[in-house]
Amino acid sequence: MTPTRARVAFPKDWTFDLAEDLIDGIRDEFDPDDAVGELAPRVAGKPVDEAEEAALQFFTDYGRRWMDRTLELGEKYTDRAYETLKKAAERTGELAFPFIPERFIEIAYLATQPIYSLPIAENTVNTFSYKMVFCDTITALREQCGDELADRLPCRAGCLTAAGRAFTSKGFDVVVSQDSRLSDGEFCQFTVRRKHA
């Protein structure tokens, strides 16, 4: 008959959710409202191309700092899902792309945007793609800079930089693109593709 096997029971304090301190820590520093509040005076009254240039620099820097902090805190506050993922990636030699960077991208958005989960459009062997349907950054830009200017400012630079950084910091060579824009339609979609040597 079937062999008997020890019955498993895992420690009751194992957690599979993201730590509250992790989410709060990132939220405090990178609240989109505050970020836009910092940017708005710098673009106010400027000609559009100068405003665009200033915003590009601002968001690129914001995206970099935002993801760097997420990577730092995300490693500090781990959870069982991440531990299992790392073990599985080590065992199979495959799953690190895209799932390890995906974790940090999810954390970055969950901490700062009004969403409970990040809609993933694709996570496969060479591609990672996600959507932002509700974005506080564009809302804040519209409120603080006016609709017309808001739609021209390249807030995408923040998302593109952050997404790219999540992958490069884990050793992946990727190209990130924006496939659709919230200001033109229903959502922003960003896609990370692996570059092959």
């Binding site: 599979f16 694709e122 591609t127």
Partner: peptide, 19 residues
């Protein structure tokens, strides 16, 4: 269609909801 295999890893619990 790869879309049908894609899924998030995390969700935030709505305030007050326990696992």
């Amino acid at each position: 269609n790869p879309k049908n295999y894609s899924n998030r890893m995390y969700k935030l619990r709505e305030p007050g909801k326990r696992p």
